[in-house]
Design a protein around this nucleic acid. Structure first.
Lengths: 194, 194
DNA sequence: TCTTGATGATACCGACCGGTCACTTACTAT
DNA sequence: ATAGTAAGTGACCGGTCGGTATCATCAAGA
């Protein structure tokens, strides 16, 4: 067992990844810290040595999620040069995500539904993240020369959030297909100059 | 106080409406039954005399929500005659809903985010409701002569769900405007025969 | 007037939750 | 060998949760 324990990630890391997975799949309120520790094969004391509270653990995970999405957005847009192509690349990347079998929706959007108080840190974090995405989409739409860049950007934002939500009743493949085709159609109409 | 108590709704009714409001605004898991009873000015015993459990109360409210949405859908579409006009009427009615100041999103969609287990009654109820809406939209799209009715219907379904989600970071008025304009554009493109 | 059904008041239960405690184990760097 | 540090163990705390039991109140109808 010595070799197994040697390669084993640190307790804090195990707790972090277990919590991320459980919070995402089951929901944050539905997941107790004892379950997190059991799945992480760690103890509560290890959790509380790394994070001062469950809320702090939640915040750390959601901040990481938001940062990962920012990086992923930058990466997806970096592959293209023209602004319109950047928008298409973002949509394509989201559609690919939707098709992954075990994907169950945007973690940040789900989290916001669990913490609906506008003053709650989680709510604010998600709102800030979504606003950032919204601004980026509108910026690309403006660079692409859309007649009404805010309208195009907000429409894409709506379709993206709608795609996350449609996952449970539409299924990943169909959600991906609809997102791809509807955004293509929308960009044909709203992407042109006035 | 006698006149006040005389006109007062029955305890079961007060509990029902208080729970509906709190579950919608704060979330189901975030609302305890004691808070429901306090707001309803009733006692726990009155609650449990009318409903066998909190889950049953939740189910009753969500079923009522779903039924109300069905009736509201029928009413919105009844005003128009042509299928394309029916679709426009549904979108218009949703946009109006979005603009109401105290509206905070589709109760069923929010509830599903709280109960993510596919086997949970709440999850299933919402999935069934969303599928029904999806079918109705596709049906109207087919009657309207769309080249790909499923694509049009699913696109509209996505935009609608996206509109609910965009409420926190976009605001009701802007969400309504975007929904109106984007659906008009989409129906121009996808609403025509092949 | 007497009954009856609905409601209120309140104390209580067991279970679970987030979080803390004192103490032990095991690895590792010097 | 030793000391420092990360991690584990299991009991425990106060609070809250969903849910129940008992008894009192009170209005309306026979």
């Amino acid at each position: 067992m010595s070799s197994a324990t040697a390669d084993r990630p640190k307790a804090a890391q195990r707790i972090h990844s277990a919590a991320k997975d459980l919070f995402h799949r089951q929901g944050i309120r539905a997941t107790g810290i004892e379950e997190v520790c059991r799945v992480a094969e760690a103890t509560k004391m290890s959790l509380y040595r790394s994070y001062p509270s469950k809320d702090a653990l939640v915040a750390a995970i959601l901040e990481e999620d938001a940062a990962a999405y920012d990086a992923w957005f930058a990466e997806a847009t970096a592959l293209a040069t023209a602004p319109a192509e950047k928008l298409r690349a973002v949509i394509a990347a989201i559609a690919d995500k939707l098709e992954k079998p075990d994907f169950c929706g945007c973690p940040l959007l789900l989290a916001q539904a669990e913490f609906r108080d506008p003053g709650h840190p989680t709510f604010r974090l998600v709102a800030a993240y979504k606003s950032r995405i919204r601004d980026q989409l509108a910026g690309l739409a403006r660079e692409a020369g859309a007649a009404d860049p805010v309208l195009l950007g907000d429409t894409l934002a709506m379709l993206i959030d709608g795609a996350w939500c449609s996952l449970p009743y539409m299924g990943g493949p169909q959600a991906a297909t609809v997102l791809r085709q509807s955004t293509a159609a929308i960009m044909d109409v709203l992407g042109k100059p006035a």
